[in-house]
């Protein structure tokens, strides 16, 4: 399998805090990869560094064969590298359908193309994806009126709407009703298999990530502690230490 994302020795500092210290990780095309680590270990920071939210202090990010570490958020996402946020971000004063319609790939076009497109375009695809995440009944509800868990699902659907090659998901199960988590895992797998989206998932719940991911990277204090198959990572004494030490 070809490498889709190659993070090479990425370093990112906040003042004195080294949030990412020469972090490397690879994501192969078509797989589901996992990123774990205790709170504050630098996972969200790494997502920001990959997607261009801020310049990195060292290292390089290769996406789809080309370096993207000098690019900004817009050009990167238009190449097909999308993310969701730990704190979920949706458009609160727009309906779910509108949230979906403005997230389509066509909406990333230039102003002239936006002027030609009807606001109500891409209707079926938007409705299909809303059904896919179980929000079809809420399609005319304002995004801001959904529960936190529903907003997470909406944000996931919006990300799929933009047809990314690689989607970075920041704690997709946090705040979701535990009885619905299995359904969500199933949807992540279907998005991966049926829609062909490669996933890199930050996940706190060990049971979830062990079932989901083919490769897992574990961060602690901004460094890569271990990486490999779920079994290798699970049995790595340093990973156990990091988690037990943190809790």
């Amino acid at each position: 399998m070809t490498l889709l994302l190659d993070v090479r020795d990425v370093t990112k500092r906040y003042g004195g805090v080294v949030a990412n210290d020469a972090v490397s990780l690879q994501v192969r095309e078509g797989e589901i990869a996992g990123l774990i680590g205790p709170n504050g270990s630098g996972k969200t920071t790494l997502f920001g560094a990959i997607t261009g939210a801020y310049p990195v202090d060292g290292g390089d990010v290769i996406f789809n064969g080309a370096s993207i570490s000098h690019l900004r958020v817009g050009p990167i996402v238009r190449q097909g590298l999308a993310r969701t946020y730990q704190q979920t971000r949706i458009y609160g004063e727009m309906t779910c359908m509108e949230n979906m319609q403005i997230s389509s790939r066509a909406s990333q076009g230039n102003v002239m193309s936006l002027l030609r497109l009807k606001a109500r375009g891409a209707q079926t695809r938007a409705e299909d994806l809303l059904s896919f995440v179980g929000l079809h009944e809420k399609r005319f509800e304002y995004g801001g009126r959904l529960s936190f868990g529903q907003q997470k699902l909406l944000e996931f659907a919006m990300a799929l709407m933009s047809e990314p090659k690689l989607l970075l998901l920041d704690e997709p199960t946090a705040g979701i009703n535990p009885t619905l988590i299995n359904g969500l895992i199933d949807r992540l797998q279907r998005a991966n298999k049926e829609l062909g989206v490669t996933l890199l998932v930050i996940e706190h719940n060990m049971r979830v990530i062990m079932n989901l991911a083919e490769h897992i990277t574990c961060l602690a204090h901004g460094r890569v502690l271990a990486s490999g198959t779920p079994d290798e990572v699970r049995n790595d004494p340093r990973v156990l230490d990091a988690y037990l030490g943190a809790q």
Partner: peptide, 14 residues
């Protein structure tokens, strides 16, 4: 209007 950073991160030419 609702979230400019998000709009940019979704690829809109803000």
């Amino acid at each position: 209007r609702d979230d400019e950073d998000k709009a940019e991160a979704m690829g809109l030419h803000t």
